[in-house]
Design a protein around this nucleic acid. Sequence first.
DNA 1: ATGGCCAATATGATTGGA
Length: 261
Amino acid sequence: MRIATWNVNSVKQRIGNLVAWLSERAPDVVCLQETKCVDEAFPREPLEALGYNLAVHGQKTFNGVAILSKRPIEDVRCGLAGDDGDDHARFLEAVVSTGTGVVRIASLYLPNGNPPDTDKYTYKLKWMDRLLEFARERLALEEPLVMAGDYNVIPTTADAKHPAAWTGDALFLPPTRERFQALVNLGLTDALRATSDARDLYTFWDYQAGAWQKNNGIRIDHLLLSPQAVDRLAGTGIDRHVRAWEKPSDHVPVYVDLAVE
DNA sequence: ATGGCCAATATGATTGGA
């Protein structure tokens, strides 16, 4: 079973690229972020035509997450617990049944948090604390769990072309990285880093300043796996060629292959 | 990590992104 994550930066602008990539990579489950449209406006038809079931959780203008799955989607839950006043559409959880049991999936779009001296960074850190609590609760179920999405976290210096340029940034500040490490310390595995120590595993290149042409990238889109999912981990990949397509997102798809049918 | 972009909004300027 192939499970992917992709921040598409507007699903309406990216529907052509999304359909082309789905046809090429044939993932079983896809977590999307930054869909940037209300649920009624989500372009369902071309995705359903490829055999995907959809769970969407969007809002006007910003944010928005979705899960596509070739198998039926069950137990859909929108939103991350811990703050009833949070109206950002950034989190969607569901369960997909397979021949060998269930896989629990979360599609998440963690706040950017810049600039760090504002309440945007406070919101990011609180959101990460809420995500830690979610992970604690779900890990206790001892199921295959994949928490996939745009974490807006550069975990280590190996995950940026120019790490020194990010020292004061919300994506790289110590409180951000400490909370990402705290997720790992709970027992979650960063699937890409577990399968490669390469220095250029980037998933995002800025639209500006020729970042793509210079390979000035960062790795901020992650799939964190529970031990029961790691036991079945068969491979990982980053589809960086998609960044060179016409009308690209600034992020590219990342995926894991799990040995579950 | 800025010279250089992109998307959404009643828009020809502002906000958010990373």
